[in-house]
Design a binder for these strands. Structure first.
Lengths: 242, 242
DNA sequence: GAGTGGTCTAGACCACGAG
DNA sequence: TCGTGGTCTAGACCACTCA
């Protein structure tokens, strides 16, 4: 079969993975330096780094330049529930940065507004404890959100109230989801390996008048989040977790 | 900025990417050998291979052991539309392998049947032209599909008709989607790099009697497929929540 | 057998973080 | 400054494909 030959990096990765899962190496611990590990496994440094790269892609190990390789705390797996607008997840702490800008190119077509229209951008970074969890950019036309757009530093409550009152009720929420590797900016912001797949959700919400109420881009690291979409949750109201 | 330093592999990858997009290297072409490319860019072989790895992760280049690196034909981007059952995509050619098996562990809990229950597995590999496009495994309880479960080699039409008549109408379709890297088996089956992110859709369909009609696992390579989920405008009992 | 990619080695030098 | 990871080199040897 194909997997008959287990290359050295896989053997090393399997060994380290086993040590982590059995608790011989605990979450938050620093691994021995790459030179030490290379000596222990009697491999060269590039080979050992390849082994660590496998664990990074699984989200099991986080490399910090100049400090070492660390076993990641197993993050709660958060389930994004599709079908609505941005909602706060009680398990996460969210920091929001608000920016005023003007629509351009791709964003303008997505929002169906002319280029140059005033927009408000909410850049939301949610944290699970100390480590970043997911990244969301929300764009809403400024003329819809009218005058009550807040200033520079905004708490999540204000965004929640802002988004909780769509003038006309929502008619449609379309969510397009795709899997890809993170951009370098996303990788550093979320402190993930550039080889860890992320889920990108592009959400466009339309009101009954046919206007785009918001466009949102969610980046959910594949090791700690997934998304659920359900048809007709007629009786059961959406609850926090699945 | 962060991207101020462009490592050599990125420079090389950018150059090759430009040559591909401008048509200097056409789809289906074989790139020069890695040794030749390394000489042209005056880098060592591992560095050049790192550059090619970037293009692989984007799905732009396919490596074939013993033959060379090939520019992939740009595959049609297929959009999976959520909310229904398995449906044939007219643009793709689908080959199906049918297997009878019995529920075990994870699959049994997902289908809410006791372990050992008879199931039918449909392993569907869809092709876009010559190259594989996506992979689907569908599991249906054999007592629901009763006697009309077909034999070994089944055409897509039979599967379509089989799945088109759910005895009771569907009550709910839940689709859980996550991003990850492919398993080695998936990578070889779909002929993708093991560093190209895939979208995994786990779909569970329930009928009005509360029985699981089918469970399906879709593997959609991130470079050629995404998924769309839309709230039905008809049922707008959903109130926006904060 | 010739040519290709797959893996690995044993170093080198640079960039970052903390004392 | 020192130890860390980040990047790269210039080979070596093996596995696969095709003539």
């Amino acid at each position: 079969m194909i997997s008959a030959v287990a290359s050295r990096r896989h053997v090393i990765a399997d060994d380290l993975r086993a040590q982590i899962s059995t608790g011989h190496i605990k979450a938050g611990d620093r691994l021995p330096s790459e030179a030490q590990l290379a000596a222990r496994y009697t491999v060269s440094t590039p080979t050992l780094r390849n082994a660590l790269a496998l664990l990074q892609a699984e989200g099991l190990v986080e490399k910090v330049h100049g400090k070492g390789n660390f076993v990641r705390h197993p993050l709660r797996r958060i389930t994004y529930i599709g079908g609505g607008l941005t909602r706060a997840n009680a398990a996460l702490h969210v920091t929001i940065r608000t920016t005023k800008l003007r629509a351009h190119g791709h964003l303008a077509t997505l929002l169906r507004v002319p280029a140059g229209s005033p927009l408000t951008e909410f850049l939301c970074l949610s944290h699970d404890g100390k480590s970043p969890h997911s990244l969301t950019r929300v764009y809403i036309p400024r003329d819809l959100a009218s005058a009550d757009v807040p200033g520079e530093s905004t708490g999540p409550e204000e965004l929640a109230t802002l988004l909780a009152k769509p003038s006309p009720p929502l008619a449609e929420v379309q969510e397009r989801v795709c899997a890809r590797l993170p951009t370098p900016m996303e990788a550093t912001t979320l402190r993930i390996s550039s080889t860890l797949a992320v889920l990108e959700v592009t959400r466009v919400a339309t009101d009954n008048a046919g206007h785009i109420v918001e466009a949102a881009f969610l980046i959910l690291p594949g090791d700690r989040a997934d998304a659920v979409f359900t048809t007709h949750p007629t009786t059961k109201e959406r609850t926090a977790e699945g």
